[in-house]
């Protein structure tokens, strides 16, 4: 089980103007606020909450996202990236943030599983976000399964996107995200087993 959330960092200055302390009080619990040592940490925690929600939505798709139900317990900056821990409704999960010049990607996965793999891409402005993430995921899956007839991508609206191998009765949940003019996909390390 994995979840991911992408933030286009170029949009943050505009978004920050609208987001007052009152906004963050709706999003971050009192216990989390000291972890935000700089502005980007707040957005990192937001993305972690979204990614944990996506992970858990696989178990309970009907539950709406309520940011305060997810609590960032740890956020550490290391040379390899930012790492942390988030407590959700149904468990506590490792979370990693991957920072690039324009992007921040949060990845969340079940404790004990290997960290998920991921890929980001700019989105052509004429292409819808939904189409762009599907297209990127298709590129990823083709690297694992060169035969295009051996798999298909199912991404029902509002549902859980999955890579499906009909011949093996196998379905592997993947995770999509988009923000601004970027899209991201994440998939479990064991996709090709």
């Amino acid at each position: 089980m994995i979840g991911t959330d992408l933030i286009d960092r170029r949009a943050l200055p505009v978004m920050a103007v609208r987001r007052s302390q009152r906004y963050w009080n709706k999003v971050l619990s009192e216990a989390e606020r000291p972890l935000a040592r700089k502005a980007l940490h707040r957005w990192a925690m937001w993305a972690a909450k979204e990614s944990a929600y996506k992970l858990e939505a696989r178990l309970d798709a009907a539950r709406p996202f309520q940011p305060k139900r997810y609590t960032t317990l740890r956020l550490e900056e290391r040379e390899s990236g930012w790492h942390g821990l988030i407590r959700g409704v149904q468990g506590t999960y490792p979370v990693a943030w991957r920072l690039q010049a324009d992007l921040m990607l949060a990845l969340c996965w079940r404790a004990g599983d290997p960290a998920p793999r991921w890929k980001t891409s700019p989105r052509p402005t004429a292409q819808s976000p939904g189409l762009a993430v599907r297209s990127l995921m298709q590129q990823v899956v083709q690297d694992y399964f060169p035969d295009p007839h051996s798999w298909c991508l199912q991404a029902p609206r509002g549902g859980i996107p999955s890579v499906v191998q009909p011949n093996h009765s196998r379905s592997v949940p993947v995770s999509f995200s988009h923000h601004g003019t970027y899209v991201a996909v994440a998939w479990p390390a064991q996709l090709c087993l």
Binding site: R18, R22, Y23, K26, V27, P64, F65, Q66, P67, R69
Partner: peptide, 26 residues
């Protein structure tokens, strides 16, 4: 999107002069 949903909660609080707690927002 979910980030704007929080904006809407805040704007609704201002527009209707109310306070919406987390449980109600959910």
């Amino acid at each position: 999107n979910s980030a704007n949903l929080v904006d809407i909660i805040l704007d609704a609080e201002d527009a209707f002069d109310i306070e919406i707690d987390d449980e109600s927002a959910e």
